[in-house]
Design a protein around this nucleic acid. Structure first.
Length: 446
RNA sequence: CGGAGCGUGGCGCAGCCUGGUAGCGCACCUGUUUUGGGUACAGGGGGUCGCAGGUUCGAAUCCUGCCGCUCCGACCA
């Protein structure tokens, strides 16, 4: 993309309403624009990031065996009355009426809907287990939306739902999602730690929140430092190997990790030696829990067992805040110049910066680099605006492009261009071919 | 939902108290200049002053009502 033809309304000044850094940077970088309280339009740059996050979530869900569907945003009130949540949910649920005066709602979540779908489509234990998921916009009429997309009223969420015959099966599904989440967040360049959540009335140990460690996080977190060091890395995962998945889950839940909601100082201090006690802040980006037959029972979603019995599904649900992640990643990765995108979710993979727009040689070299990098499958933003070098650097750093390829007459005279890493600031002078090879290798392209 | 505050060109703000031709910075357009980390100068375009009603010769400014938005706290992917 040539920046001169793109739609990138960046701002030098920070809009007054933005309080936290991700919100400020998203507005300044022209990623989003507020439509009304807690509701945002996603501008081209923001939309690209959102799509990249979505793609990773889709990919990892399906690798873990979950099956994509798409349920509507507008739901009938009927199912919610049947599950008992129509009255329970309260003012957070946006209720609307259609022209026939039928009660509808903008879905805040989809347990009822998916349970109805699974109940109708799954009749036998032979059809189990199944995990269905979708990525869809939700609406929760929060009393106080804030922090931009981190706590919007309208938000994009991945929600998966598992259906099993018994609790043991449900645990296996839970573990799949657990490990899938570890991999998903890691792929986005994030350090997300699973923490024991409040099980509520269901009870049990099968509920975890996944929190990104970030100084500006909303929740206080208390954990064993060793847990924060764990990574899956490139290790292969056999999604059919239930014991191995259980082992991974055990490894990640072996030690103390809780948010301030469930934190118990005495337990923390007795279980974790002082030098390993990590107290930090975190942002919740995922939440998984097992809820048994909470919805299948009232909605009468049942299967036949091998013995010919009829039983309700054992289920769990598994959420990832997709739109929230866009903000959360920024909270976890920025500096005073702007955003620093992890390569996996960057809106563009590399920026070509022409230091002397209008200089025949520089223009030619840049056009050449842009064409060749693009041909090699890299997503390039070419800053070909008629701006001074400083303005270009400021813009590209603000929007957080991981690599800059800086091209000017001086370097070209020496036969080199500059390859600059956004995160480290490390700069290398390389012949253009070498720089391109380096970038292609970094991103795993030919 | 309790408390506080704000609505004036795309963004950041002043003007309001004490009513009298709507202003500044950024951004934008034109020209000159400059050109390796947000150049400088000159000229220019753009605003129903959130909405409605009222007071007044005259309202961004005073009064009333409404709407929108933000922040702090209690609650949440």
């Amino acid at each position: 993309m040539r920046l001169s033809r793109y739609f990138l309304p960046v701002q030098k000044e920070t809009p007054a309403e933005a309080e936290i850094v991700s919100h400020r940077l998203m507005l300044r970088a022209g990623m989003i624009r507020q439509a009304s309280a807690g509701i945002y339009s996603w501008l081209p740059l923001g939309y690209k990031v959102l799509r990249k996050i979505e793609d990773i979530v889709h990919d990892e869900q399906q690798k873990a065996g979950a099956i994509p569907v798409l349920m509507p945003t507008i739901q009938s009130a009927d199912l919610w009355k049947q599950s008992g949540r129509y009255d329970d949910y309260g003012a957070e649920m946006l209720r609307i009426k259609d022209r026939g005066d039928r009660e509808m709602l903008y879905g805040p979540t989809n347990e009822e809907q998916i349970t109805e779908i699974a109940g109708a489509g799954i009749r036998s234990y032979r059809d189990l287990p199944r995990i269905l998921y979708h990525i869809q916009w939700k609406f929760r009429d929060e009393v106080r939306p804030r922090f931009g997309v981190m706590r919007g009223r309208e938000f994009l969420m991945k929600d998966a739902y598992s259906f099993d015959l018994d609790k043991e099966g449900a645990r296996a599904s839970y573990n799949r999602m657990f490990v899938s989440y570890l991999r998903t967040f890691e792929r986005m360049g994030l350090k997300a730690v699973p923490m024991r959540a409040d099980p509520g009335p269901i009870g049990g140990d099968m509920t975890h929140e996944f929190l990104i460690l970030a100084e500006t996080g909303e929740s206080g977190v208390f954990l064993d430092r060793d847990l924060a060091e764990l990574t899956l890395g490139d290790s292969a995962i056999d999604w059919e190997d239930a014991p191995a998945l259980q082992e991974t889950v055990d490894r990640y839940t072996a030690s103390y990790a809780r948010t301030d909601e469930t934190h118990e100082e005495a337990v923390f201090e007795s279980e974790i030696p002082e030098d390993r006690r990590l107290m930090a802040r975190g942002i919740e980006v995922g939440h998984i829990f097992y809820f048994g037959s909470k919805y299948s029972k009232p909605l009468n979603a049942t299967v036949n067992t091998p013995d010919g019995e009829v039983v309700p599904f054992e289920s769990g649900s598994y959420g990832i805040g997709v739109s929230r992640l866009a903000g959360a990643i920024i909270e976890a990765s920025h500096d005073d110049k702007g955003i620093i995108w992890p390569e996996a979710v960057a809106p563009f993979e590399v920026a070509v910066i022409n230091l002397r727009q209008g200089d025949t040689e520089a223009d030619g070299a840049c056009a050449d680099l842009y064409a060749k990098l693009t041909a090699r499958g890299l997503d390039v933003i070419y800053d070909d605006r008629d701006e001074r070098a400083g303005a270009k650097f400021a813009t590209i750093d603000l929007i957080g492009i991981p690599w800059k390829l800086v091209v000017g007459p001086r370097g070209l005279k020496e036969g080199v261009v500059e390859l600059v890493n956004r995160r480290t600031g490390e700069t290398e002078n390389l012949p253009p071919e070498d720089a391109m090879n380096r970038l292609a290798a970094t991103y795993g392209r030919a």
